[in-house]
Design a protein around this nucleic acid. Structure first.
Lengths: 138, 138
DNA sequence: CTTGAACCTATAGCCGCTAGAGGATGTAGC
DNA sequence: GCTACATCCTCTAGCGGCTATAGGTTCAAG
């Protein structure tokens, strides 16, 4: 019927100390306890913890997750707020992709220069002065 | 001629305590000091600190940055030795790009839900049940 | 020579976990 | 019922990578 913290951990792919940490900071409600003070969870908690894990993996901060969870518990309210949180995040991610792609190109150049000297490799300059070096040829 | 820590901070867009922290953990060399023990920097340091900032923004850990910086300070060494290190970083960067791209697609799906109610809003669903919602159309 | 911004060190705190010690609980097999 | 042992409990301390504060010193312009 109910789940131990270990079972919850396995099902939601979240480590046990992390579950207790989430309880501590109020992301997870305090669960029922056995006589001997062991935590017992319900399938509902698996869903909530999955939600939290996914949001964390997507780079949402705990505070943002708290907000999103708040929205989820008021399903009649507009999702404009959730929309804003997500949009801000999207912009950030797109920016990172662009810069990582530029970096990858430079690393590929570097790896391609097999028997040369580091002095000829431009990785340092590229990262030190990203905008200037970005579009130069190797 | 030389720069104060404040000027370095402004030019490299890195906060002053962070600069001192980087010195402490050995990412930045100890700079020259005035009689009164104040740090004085050179344009070279702006470049190095820019490098560090960009690498951090791209998600490299301090230890990886240490290695990359190591390559730059042995310009007489063959690329062959450094080749493996660089290739490892390239792999890492490619992984990051892949994961961020997947993330972006998902965020774009989420943002597509504009003025609905939370009940209809995919943000909550997607996060609550990642695998199910990932490839559905909006 | 004074003033005030900028600097110094040292320490403590932040987030988001993660690990360990030392002990209590729960369950399966006898 | 009893034992064995995996799993659980709390508490504390540590991690990376900063960031903020307190309390004092230096530097440069006027």
């Amino acid at each position: 019927m109910s789940l131990t913290i270990g079972e919850l951990s396995r099902q939601a792919q979240v480590k046990i100390p992390t579950i207790r940490y989430y309880e501590q900071i109020g992301l997870l409600a305090e669960p029922v306890r056995t006589e001997g003070q062991q935590r017992r969870y319900w399938p509902e908690d698996v869903r909530r913890l999955n939600f939290i894990r996914h949001a964390r993996e997507l780079g949402f901060e705990v505070e943002a997750i708290r907000q999103l969870l708040g929205l989820a518990s008021h399903p009649d309210r507009s999702c404009g707020e959730a929309h804003e949180i997500t949009k801000a995040h999207l912009t950030e991610v797109n920016d990172k992709i662009a810069r990582l792609t530029a970096l990858r190109d430079e690393l590929q150049n570097m790896v391609a220069c097999d028997n040369g000297k580091v002095a000829k490799c431009r990785i340092i300059e590229v990262l030190a002065d990203h905008d200037k070096c970005l579009h130069e040829t190797h």
